[in-house]
Amino acid sequence: MSGYLEGILVLLAVNVVFAYGAFLPVAAGQLNLGLAGFAAIGAYASAYLSNTYAIDPILAILLGGIAAGAVALIVAVPVLRTRGIYLALATFAVGQIVQAALLNLEVVGGAAGYPVTAFIRLPTIAAFAAGVVVLVALLFATRFGIAVTAVHDDERVADLMGLNTRAFQVAAFTLGSVIAGIGGGLYAHHFSFIEAQYFNIGLSITIVLYVLLGGTQTVLGPLLGAAVFTLLPELLRGSANWRYVHFAAAVIILMALRPQGLLTAAQIRRLLGLDRAALSRERAA
């Protein structure tokens, strides 16, 4: 496989992982604009572990995810007390603080960046990405998926039905951060060099955009969003700058035409013939 193709596929797999990190809180009705910060924690923690203690990178990446999740859990309890714009701004501030803190942390290179010795290739990264997709899909096939959607749709009613809405929001936020941290670890161990500047607000925004474009109502939405918007620019070629222009324009137009995203749950059910069967039976009755 050519290096170019491998590079793109690695980026695709990492973006898919990031997208699921953003998807979990969004599915519970929350926007995490600090996602890049949690990805950075995963990247730096796993790199530090594999550099310093020569831990197997796979284990280091998983531990990095747990580190990101632990920070998220500590932050989630006060942050998720806020709502709407306040929540978006609070998560945003968290991301900025993490980035600024890493820039000052000399043990991981500070502003100069941090080289990573251990190296993983596409198969490992693809396996991680596939694992994340399957695990999230399985999770959403359980009562957890129903509960999270219920909290998203109508928090009041969910509460009256006995759902601990805060616990589900904290769980979704924390799990999403674990996944983002794993994505950061994968990135660090393939590209061999990380710098805090990479994990900026722009990264958080781009990932959230993948999810909203793909559609937030189904577990396949983030996969589709990340795939289309990682691969499409490659097909279009052009300079990196024009790719951003195309991406941003596509986001704006798609959001205006189809604010629910490319893929919706109802659409999938229609594809599988479930809705139609119900309606035809209703007409027959």
Binding site: A141, T142, R143, G145, I146
Partner: peptide, 11 residues
Amino acid sequence: GGLFGVLQPVN
């Protein structure tokens, strides 16, 4: 609604 209940594969 417990942890076991939440992880029931209902779907």
